[in-house]
Design a binder for these strands. Structure first.
Lengths: 328, 328
DNA sequence: CTGTTAGCGCCTTCAA
DNA sequence: TTGAAGGCGCTAACAG
């Protein structure tokens, strides 16, 4: 079923049908009624492929995320969906599993669909990826981070700043003997930035991390629990442990619950992300809320505000808030 | 940059370039080398819109999910991505927020992209949605559930069976005084099916739920905690509580931890889904693993196995396993 | 308010 | 092994 079929049934020209279906230009009520009836009668489904080819205006948005394994990027994706909803644009989603070569392939495949814009997590791309994104001329939003210069738009928060502020927060509460529990930095550059910020805060006070246990793999509750056990076994006397994120920190809280360690009184625990699960613990987790939904939503809104790529780069800071919780 | 530009530079015809880029038909090494050089030189990016229009063979797959708010559907989406990876197909994702009218619009918008197949969660669609999916002629996989007749393919598990088996499991361990903690059935038909299965198991033993607390909203850890508190306050003496899912059940465990109730000894708790968080608790949650990643992956594999829709409907049972845990 | 003309960029078919 | 012609379904631009 094509426009031509509808046009024949409605006894008008193709372009009239096209205009009516797109609500464009002045149309008589008679024609509109006839066309809408014909559309219903023949069960016409528009072909956006043809429409996009003819108009060179696709309503697809490429989305490239590193992972869907924890709730962080699904939250970003929710924000993207929410931002896209009013405009009727559709996201085409790719997942890289933190592999820059896979990302390169993916970006190539997505650009072939002539998307109206591209949303991609992080700043770590191959040269080819970066060049293609630049050359595409479409709007490109790089998400999560604002600690580097974007191709076009950056939307996120300063992870170095967040790490620094968590350090300041713990120092202000009197903690002095710091440990750190983390996960794979190769895959999570932002966790490393937070760690750097934390170290700087300690350094400014003449302190340093007394010990750290870094899991060689992705973050998880279970990894957090095991790494805290290891850290405490190795280095007694710590009074505060910062975790690379909430998943890890919740594991830490579980370890404490299972071993009679009282969070805060015996040991301060501090996370990052502000996940629901941390706030639902018997003692809510002290952490930093990272506004992931907002990052996705704001990215879309920034793209939509100016569909053409302007000369200067744009950096949008979605910020973060310290959540006091009860564990620090 | 189009095929024509590349052809001019390589001094061959458009169609030769097209064939080389698609690895089709016999091509001389000379032509191939010249074309590949020209592609690199002009920085050609193929236009899949045009390609799809000409060949009527898109590599897009429509994916319609009700929500991304907890990890369940992101897990399914991961499975879909994993299944799609080898073929180079791209998912176009829509989220309905459990709204059938939004689903209807979404399905219409996605079908306009002439996807090779459609993957959609659940069986609850408007008549129009169902008719459109049927009429599209493409493969349609309905996920999560196998307790109803699909349009084409169903991939999932019997939720009624899972509920029944969790009841049998608890009965076999000697529990007799049952409560239930749930969430919004309007939005989660599958939770209701599990509840029905549970009730049937009890009934067969001459028992019934003594009380239930159902939260009027989506499931969450916090809702689970509050509802369990309410239930236990109202009905003392329960020895087992089944939860509508793991999110709720983890909240229940948190309530117990915070109130000196020993899971299993004082009160059995049982979830559904087999989430990581439940297994990382100080006492791992007794639950049923629902193989969500597998559902997504198998759906794609089933679609790919027979790209044309066959006469008979296909139902794939991805099953479930009881996870003994330590809370029941 | 409606229609005609001429593509969009690629691929299928047929011919060489 | 290569090419020419024609068309996929729709829309921009220009006329009427």
């Amino acid at each position: 079923m094509t426009l031509a079929d509808v046009a024949r049934v409605a006894r008008v020209s193709e372009i009239t049908v096209s205009r009516i279906l797109r609500d464009k230009g002045p149309i008589s009520e008679r024609a509109r009624a006839a066309v809408l009836a014909a559309v219903a009668q023949v069960g016409y489904v528009p072909n956006r492929i043809a429409g996009t080819l003819a108009s060179a205006a696709s309503n697809l948005v490429g989305v490239v995320l590193p992972s869907l394994s924890n709730i962080v990027f699904p939250d970003v994706l929710r924000g993207i969906h929410a931002g896209l909803e009013p405009s009727g644009f559709q996201p085409v989603v790719g997942v890289t599993e933190y592999d820059m070569l896979r990302e390169e392939k993916l970006v190539g495949a997505l650009l072939a669909w002539k998307p109206a814009a591209m949303i991609i997590a992080g700043f770590d791309h191959t040269d080819i990826t970066r060049r293609r994104l630049e050359a595409s001329g479409i709007r490109v939003a790089e998400l999560m981070d604002i600690d580097a210069a974007p191709i076009d738009i950056a939307v996120g928060l300063s992870h170095r700043g967040a790490g620094y502020d968590s350090g300041r927060h713990l120092l202000a509460r009197g903690y002095r003997r710091f440990g750190y529990v983390g996960h794979d930095w190769q895959q999570d550059r932002r966790a490393r930035l937070r760690w750097e910020g934390l170290c700087r805060a300690l350094q400014e006070t003449g302190l340093a991390l007394l010990d750290q246990a870094v899991f060689d793999g992705p973050s998880s509750t279970d990894a957090g629990r095991r790494m805290l056990a290891e850290l405490l076994g190795r280095t007694p006397g710590l009074d505060a442990v910062a975790f690379s994120n909430d998943d890890m920190a919740v594991g830490g809280v579980f370890h404490c619950i299972g071993h009679g360690i009282r969070p805060k009184q015996d040991l301060a625990l501090f996370g990052f992300n502000g996940l629901d699960i941390g706030q639902a613990l018997p003692i809510p987790l002290a952490t930093i809320r990272s506004n992931r939904f907002l990052i996705g939503k704001v990215a879309v809104e920034t793209i939509m505000a100016t569909p053409r790529r302007p000369a200067e780069r744009i950096v949008v800071n979605t910020g973060y808030e310290i959540v006091e919780g009860g564990t620090a």
